[in-house]
């Protein structure tokens, strides 16, 4: 030891590391958005580098195939089919990302001991979970943005083509029978045919359906994250989350069954209540069919959906951080 007696270890250390780090003098903050953001972007990068976006190629190939291969229907049917298949595929992909992707996160960190290296830094456990959740949400959001853009382009292009085809057909008819220029009902028929296409084509309500799909996937992400905090295997997490997904779709039926069967039965009421508390009610998000058949979606419904989603995320994430903060790693 060749140093002066009155030099503290701290001072010596500072000498070795150049300047003292800014964090050293700051008291530790219990909640740090920048830390959460670092974890979020890390999770996102991790998923991206796991090549999850390659799955989107299947989606793209699928809807392009549907859009331009099956041309045996009426224009409206064709557009409906396209929307139905595309939204269904989006729902499927978002669901797969939400369940399979999220289920992998914590077990992988545990197995690789990367969890240790993060949690032994001054990172509260709920921030770690929040980072994982937000990372997955960003991932799902970005992939839905991509799918949505492709979907709208395909629907738009298909709509334009169909409109042109119909217009050309009517024009040809007019060329053959010029007297129809004066026929009011013929003109009406032509207008109707064209507006049917417009109605079933690109409309803002499609975005409402996409938003609903995203919200549903967010809830599934939170559910899966919760399950993965206490599950011991990834397979268990995936299967349980799929079960929750299915129950979530049927829970309004179950609830009405329990409630209608015996209006004053305490047990039934309790069961219905428990069902509603534990499982998310995905019936709320069922607007895809309405959108496909061209109905308009009320803004209040969207707000209600978004609000419920926030509530679900809050509840499931709170439960997850409760379980996780007591977990032995």
């Amino acid at each position: 030891m060749n140093d002066d007696d009155h030099e503290t270890p701290d001072q010596k250390r500072t000498g070795y590391s150049g300047a003292a780090l800014a964090t050293e003098s700051q008291p530790h903050s219990i909640f740090s958005p920048s830390r959460i953001w670092a974890l979020t972007m890390h999770t996102f990068t991790q998923m991206v580098r796991m090549r999850v976006f390659y799955f989107l190629l299947f989606f793209s190939a699928g809807i392009i195939l549907v859009a331009f291969m099956f041309l045996r229907f009426t224009p409206e049917q064709e557009l409906k089919l396209l929307k139905d298949v595309s939204l269904g595929a989006m729902s499927l992909f978002a669901g797969i990302f939400a369940i399979a992707g999220t289920a992998l996160l914590i077990p992988k960190d545990l197995e690789d001991r990367t969890l240790y290296t993060i949690l032994c830094k001054p990172v509260p456990r709920f921030e770690y979970l929040l980072g994982k959740l937000l990372g997955m949400l960003v991932l799902i959001f970005v992939s839905m943005l991509f799918m949505d853009a492709l979907f709208c382009t395909v629907v738009g292009v298909r709509q334009k083509i169909l409109e042109k085809e119909v217009a050309v057909a009517y024009d040809q008819e007019l060329a053959k029978y010029p007297e129809r220029e004066q026929n009011e009902s013929w003109k009406e028929q032509r207008e109707e045919a064209l507006s049917a296409i417009t109605e079933n084509g690109l409309r803002w309500d499609l975005q409402a359906a996409v938003w609903a799909i995203f919200l549903k996937a967010s809830v599934m992400t939170a559910v899966t994250l919760l399950v993965s905090t206490f599950a011991t295997t990834t397979l268990f997490t995936i299967i349980s989350s799929i079960a929750v997904f299915i129950i979530g779709h049927g829970q309004h039926l179950g609830r009405s069954y329990f409630l209608s069967g015996a209006p004053d039965g305490g047990l039934e009421r309790a069961l219905a209540g428990a069902l509603a508390v534990i499982f998310p009610d995905f019936h709320l998000y069922d607007i895809v069919d309405a959108v496909v058949s061209g109905e308009t979606i009320a803004t209040t419904l969207l707000l209600q959906m978004s609000g419920m989603t926030c509530l679900y995320l809050l509840i499931y994430t709170a439960a997850a951080s409760f379980v996780f903060s007591n977990k032995e790693l």
Binding site: T23, R35, A38, H42, Q46, D112, R113, K121, P122
Partner: peptide, 24 residues
């Protein structure tokens, strides 16, 4: 930790960058 494995998808620089961010 014993037998450490880190995030395989990150490079060494990115790893230090990540842990630095997490430490604020």
């Amino acid at each position: 930790p014993e037998n450490p494995y880190f995030y395989k998808h990150l490079t060494a620089s990115e790893t230090l960058e990540f842990y630095g961010r997490v430490c604020g």
